[in-house]
Design a protein around this nucleic acid. Structure first.
Lengths: 250, 250
DNA sequence: ATGTTTAATTAGCGCTCGATCAGAAATTGG
DNA sequence: CCAATTTCTGATCGAGCGCTAATTAAACAT
C-alpha cells in the first residue's frame, strides 16, 4: 500500500528520454529560507481553513502546498499552533487606526463619514478568508473573537453614537450614558452591513454587485431613522416608568 | 485496553448487597419502540451537532444518549443520513404560514406588523440549536440553506417592501419592479435583527436582555428611515443616468 | 571538489474515526 | 412456560488522523 505521507502537489509527467535530467523539475525538492516557507504555509493555511474549517487535515494542506505533510510540523510544533498563527495573521494587521479618526472628523457630515468608514472597513475585511475564519473561530468559542467584537463596540459603535448625538444636539455620553438599546441601534447598522458578508461567504448566495451603493443606502436609512429613536430613548431614560412601557410594549 | 465501543451514559453505583437485583436499574438495557428511540437520537443529535459541529463523533453522541455507538447505525445507515435528518427536523416544521398573513394585515400599521412579525419570528428560530445548525450547514454549503434564504426573500422581504410602498403611496412592484438596493434595505432590517442571534449564539457575547425592545427600536428606525430611501431609489430608476451617479458615487 | 549545515522526504507509530456483524438480552405471542 | 422476534451490545475492521524519527539531498562556505 502507498506510504502514509503527503504527496507533492502537482504530479509532473514521468521522466522520459536519456537526455532529460534524472529528476524532473516538477518533482525536484526545493529548499526555501525558513521564513519564506513559513509564510507560504501560513498563507495557504488561511485559505485552506477558511474553506473547510479547522478540522481540515494537514495532509490535504500539504498537498495544496506541494510539500510533504511532516514538513508542516517542522515549522509549527502542533496543528493548534498553526491555527493560532492563522488567527494572528487574519485578525491583527487588518485594523486601521485611521478609521477611528475618520469617524470623528467633523469637517465631513456624519453621513459622509459613515459611508466612507464602512466602504473602507468592508474593503479591508470583506474577504472570503476573513469572514469565514471569523465565523469558524466564533463557533469554536475562541477568545480572540470576543476581543474583536469588544474592539468594534468600543472603537467604532460608541464613536458612531457619540457623533450621532453631537450631530443632533443631544447630550454627550459623559452626561447621559449610552443605554443598551441605544448601542444596539449601532449594532443594527453594523449588523445590517456585516450580514451582507455572511450571505455572500457563509451562505454563498448572490448579493448585489454594487455593495458601495447598498452601504450608502443603509447609512442613509440609518441617518434618517436613528436620531429620532435615540432622542426617544434618552428622553425615556430621564422619565423612566410609564414612558418606557408605552414605547416597548403594545 | 478498553473496548472501542461507546459506553453507557451515566455510570451507576456498582451493584451492592445480595438483596438488590442482579443488574442495577441504571445499567439495565432498555428496549424502546423503534420510533421512540429514533426520535431520541435525532433530538440529541441536534443538540450535539449544534454544539460541536457536524464533525462531532458518533461515539460521543452515543455516550450522551446513554447507548452504544453501533446502535445509532441501526437507525441511520450512515452519519450523513443522520445529519440530513437533523436538517429536516430543524428547518422544516418551524415555518409558520401565519407570519405571511400577519405581514399583509392592513388593519394594523406596518410598524406594528413588523414588530409583531419579528417578535414571533425570533421567538420561533432564535434558539441555540437553530442558529448554530443554520450557520454550520451554511459553512458546509448545504443546499437547504440557500432554499431557506430564498424563502425569506420571497415570502418575507418582498412582502415587507410591498407593504412599505403601499404605506407610503408608492407604486406596486408590478408597476415598478424591486431594484436590488431596495430589496437590500429589507435585508438590512432582517440582518440587523438576525445579527443579534449571531452575536449571542455564534460569538457568544452578551446581548441585551430586552430583545423585544431592541426589535421595536430597530423597526422604528427602519420605518423612520427607509421610506425616503425607497422613494429616492424608485425616482432614480425612472431617470437613471446622472441621478444614480450622484447618489451612489461621490 | 569536499565537508557542513539544515530543509525536506520516507517510513511508520499510536490512536480515533465511521461502520460491520455475530451474538446476547429484552419483549411479545402463543 | 417456551419459541419467535427485534432491540441492543461487544468486539473489531480498515482507513485516516496528528505527529515523530531516521534518512536524503540541496545550498553554501571553503
Amino acid at each position: 500500500m502507498a506510504p502514509d505521507t503527503g504527496n507533492r502537489g502537482v504530479e509532473g509527467t514521468e521522466e522520459g528520454g536519456a537526455g532529460s535530467p534524472r529528476v524532473p523539475e516538477s518533482r525536484r525538492r526545493k529548499r526555501l529560507p525558513r521564513s519564506e516557507r513559513e509564510q507560504m504555509i501560513v498563507e495557504e493555511a488561511i485559505r485552506f481553513f477558511a474553506e473547510v474549517g479547522f478540522e481540515g487535515q494537514t495532509r490535504e494542506l500539504a498537498r495544496r502546498l506541494g510539500i510533504t505533510q511532516p514538513l508542516i510540523f517542522r515549522y509549527f510544533p502542533t496543528k493548534e499552533d498553526l491555527i493560532e498563527r492563522v488567527y494572528q495573521e487574519v485578525y491583527l494587521s487588518r485594523w486601521n487606526p485611521w478609521w477611528e479618526e475618520l469617524l470623528e472628523d467633523r469637517s465631513l457630515t456624519l453621513e459622509e463619514r459613515l459611508t466612507d468608514f464602512y466602504r473602507a472597513y468592508t474593503k479591508a475585511i470583506f474577504t472570503y478568508e476573513w469572514v469565514r475564519i471569523f465565523v469558524y473561530s466564533g463557533l469554536k468559542g475562541v477568545n480572540i473573537n470576543k476581543r474583536y467584537l469588544a474592539l468594534i463596540r468600543d472603537r467604532v459603535l460608541k464613536r458612531i453614537m457619540r457623533e450621532l448625538r453631537a450631530a443632533n444636539g443631544l447630550p454627550e455620553p459623559e452626561k447621559v450614558a449610552f443605554s443598551e438599546p441605544e448601542l444596539e441601534l449601532a449594532w443594527g447598522l453594523h449588523g445590517s452591513i456585516f450580514y451582507i458578508a455572511i450571505r455572500k461567504w457563509i451562505y454563498e448566495v448572490a448579493i448585489p454587485s454594487d455593495i458601495e451603493g447598498v452601504i450608502a443606502a443603509e447609512v442613509e436609512s440609518f441617518m434618517n431613522g436613528a436620531p429620532k429613536v435615540v432622542a426617544r430613548l434618552i428622553d425615556e431614560h430621564r422619565r423612566p416608568a410609564s414612558a418606557a412601557r408605552k414605547a416597548t410594549g403594545r
